[in-house]
């Protein structure tokens, strides 16, 4: 039951490994994940590449419980129990969804500072997929 094939994943590696975003040449806003046309002005498809800091704040979060995980995350649930997933408002402006890591689920709070780290996301088609997860940013404010 492949659902993100290796080639499909491979095409998104710059987003997932380096958090490469797009700064719109017309309105200056930063898009991430990438779009064909800037989602802020809907008027330009010309961008400068911009590597994001990976820093941001928790905009909202959920604690995925038993039965709430997709099949490809069932093993993680079995091994580690409930895990937090957040929408993070990045320092450069855009919001993005990601799993939280290196944190007790009970300690996740709205507005808490976080930073992206490259982690193992899951395994599919026998291939480990890496991408970013968000850890508490102890130096952030």
């Amino acid at each position: 039951m492949a659902h993100v094939s290796v080639p499909m994943y491979w095409r998104t590696i710059p987003q997932r490994y380096q958090m490469m975003g797009q700064k719109c040449k017309k309105c200056g806003a930063v898009n991430f994940p990438p779009k064909g046309v800037c989602k802020y002005c809907n008027a330009s498809s010309e961008f400068e590449e911009l590597q994001l800091s990976g820093k941001g704040k928790v905009h909202t979060f959920v604690l995925i419980g038993a039965g709430g995980a997709p099949p490809e995350f069932a093993d993680q649930m079995k091994a580690g129990g409930s895990y937090p997933v957040a929408i993070v408002e990045l320092a450069e402006g855009p919001k993005v969804i990601g799993q939280m890591t290196d944190v007790n689920p009970k300690d996740v709070k709205m507005g808490m500072p976080v930073k992206a780290e490259l982690k193992k996301i899951y395994t599919e088609e026998g291939v480990i997929r890496y991408g970013f997860k968000f850890a508490p940013d102890l130096e952030g404010k």
Binding site: P33, G68, V85, I97, Q99, G131
Partner: peptide, 16 residues
């Protein structure tokens, strides 16, 4: 590409 790979189903999204 993103919601699913963060480990959510629809219950997770509506919970957010």
């Amino acid at each position: 590409e993103y919601e699913r790979l963060a480990g959510t189903t629809f219950a997770g999204l509506y919970a957010l």
